[in-house]
Computed example of a mutant assay.
Amino acid sequence: MSGEFAQLVVDEAIFHLVPQRKRSDPVPAELKLSEAVCQLGEDVRGKIQANFRGVLTKHGRPVVEELEVKRSTVPDRIYEYLAQQRDLVDVSIDLAELLFESQKGRSPAGLLLVAAARLGGKRALLIVKLEQEGGLRAEDVLVEGKRTFDMSYFADLLMTEHNKIYKAALFCVDGVPEDGPIEGWAADKQLAGKMAQFWLQAFLGCRQKEDPKRLTQKFHEAAVDWVDKRVDDPEKSVDYLMAVLVELRSNTVTLDPTAFAADHLDLYDQDSFLAYLASKDVPTTIFDKDIARVAPRLSELQIGFASGISIVAPVKRVREDIKIDEHSDGTSTVTVKGKITSTRSHYSARKDDAPHTDGQTPGADSTA
C-alpha cells in the first residue's frame, strides 16, 4: 500500500449531518442524510485535497481490520465500495448510520464526509468526521430532485481556520486482499497522536497495524545498532547515542525519525541513518511513541573499549563529566571528571570467558 498522500485525489464527496447522540433526550436525534453527491469546483477540490493530505501525513497511522473480535461492519461496507459492488451514496448512508450508533453521548455533533478518491491512481475511499466551531448551519438543497447540502457552505467549513477535522480514515483498493483483512490509515487530531477507541475500534472496526511499544523498541534497537556499526568517530557516536536516548526520554507522544535525523545528525549521516532504519522495518515517518519496553535502557550510556574495559555513566552526567580525545592512531582517551566514592569487584559473563567445569566458584582453592 502506498503512503504517498500527496497523490490523494478527491473525485466526489457526499456529506451527512450526524447529531449528538444523547440517550437521555426525550426525542431521539435524527440523522440528516444526503441523497446525492455535492458539486465540487476545481478550486474547492484543490483546497479540500490539500487539507486532507496534510491531516493524513501528520496524523495518519497504518491500521488493519480487527478479525478476532468483529466490532463493526464498516470494513464490509468499505470492501463493497472498493470492489465496486455498491455506489458511493448508498455506502455513505450506511457509514453515517454506523457512526451515529457507535459514538457515545459525549461525542459532539458533526458532519460525516465520505469521498470517492484515488491514491496513486487507484480507487480509494476517504471517511472524515468534522465539525465547525460555533455550531452547524447546514442548508439542504435539491439537485435533480435529490437532497444534498450546499457545497459553498461546506467549502467555508473545510477551509476556514475555525474548522476541526477531527478524525479521518483512508482505504485504498491495494489494501483489500481477497484472503486477508482490509488495511488503510486512520487519523485523530484531537488526541495528539493517539486515537479514540470509538473511532478506531467501535466505528472503523480496526486496530493499529503496529504496536507503538514494539515500534519504539525497534527504533531504539536500530538506532543504537546504526551508531555502533556505522559511526566511526567516538565523540560523534556518543553525541548521536545521547540524542537517541534524550529523544526517547522526552515528553513527546510521537516520534518522527526523519525530523530526528535532520535535527541531530550531520547532513551526510542522515540518509545512512534513515536507510538503516528502513532495512530494519522501522518507519521513517511519524509514529506513536511508547517507551514501556525500553525505559530501563534509557537512563545510562555505556562506552566500551577493545580491551574489554567499559564505562557506564548516567545520561544526565555524560556531557558534563566525560571528555573524549581522539588520537591519530585510532585510539581515544576518555577522561572522567568527578570524585571517586567507591570501588567494587564486578563479574560479567562474557562470551570469551572459559567455562568452569569443576563445579567450583572461579578462584576457589581446590584442595581440602
Rank of each mutant, 00 (worst) to 15 (best):
K146T: 00
Q20T: 07
A29R: 14
L215K: 06
I309D: 02
I324E: 01
R77I: 09
G60T: 07
S328T: 06
G205H: 07
D188R: 05
Q270D: 01
H16W: 03
E4L: 11
D353P: 01
A354C: 00
I324Y: 01
L130H: 05
R71I: 00
K167I: 01
R118A: 04
V114Y: 08
D150M: 04
Q208M: 12
E68N: 04
L113A: 10
E139N: 03
Q190D: 08
H327N: 05
G308H: 07
A187I: 04
E12F: 10
L215T: 04
P212Q: 03
L170F: 02
I48S: 06
Q208Y: 07
K70W: 00
D266W: 05
A29Y: 13
V224G: 09
E144F: 13
T73I: 08
H162A: 08
V253P: 00
C172A: 08
T367P: 00
C38H: 05
A259V: 11
E210F: 11
E326N: 06
K146F: 01
E144I: 03
K236H: 06
S279Y: 04
V64R: 09
E144T: 00
I48C: 14
S34A: 14
K32V: 14
V74C: 04
K167W: 04
E4M: 09
K32D: 07
K209F: 02
L301Y: 06
I303G: 06
G145Y: 05
D76P: 01
C38L: 15
G338C: 08
Y347R: 09
V244H: 13
I303H: 07
Y166M: 13
L267Y: 10
A109S: 12
R293L: 15
K316I: 02
K146W: 02
E42D: 15
K339Q: 01
S237I: 13
K22L: 14
S237Y: 13
A36N: 13
R106K: 11
K164T: 02
H264W: 04
L158V: 12
L95R: 12
L88F: 07
I127L: 08
Q7T: 15
L67Y: 03
F219K: 11
T357V: 00
P283F: 13
L245N: 13
N251I: 03
A259Y: 12
A29M: 05
A83W: 04
V114I: 03
C206I: 06
L125G: 03
G41T: 15
S72W: 06
L265T: 11
D225M: 12
R118W: 00
A222M: 08
A262V: 08
D271R: 15
E68D: 09
A6Q: 11
F273S: 09
K323T: 07
V27R: 14
V282I: 09
T57A: 14
A192D: 15
S107I: 10
A243K: 11
Q103F: 13
V64K: 10
F52C: 13
M242L: 14
E66V: 03
A261V: 07
A168S: 13
R77D: 14
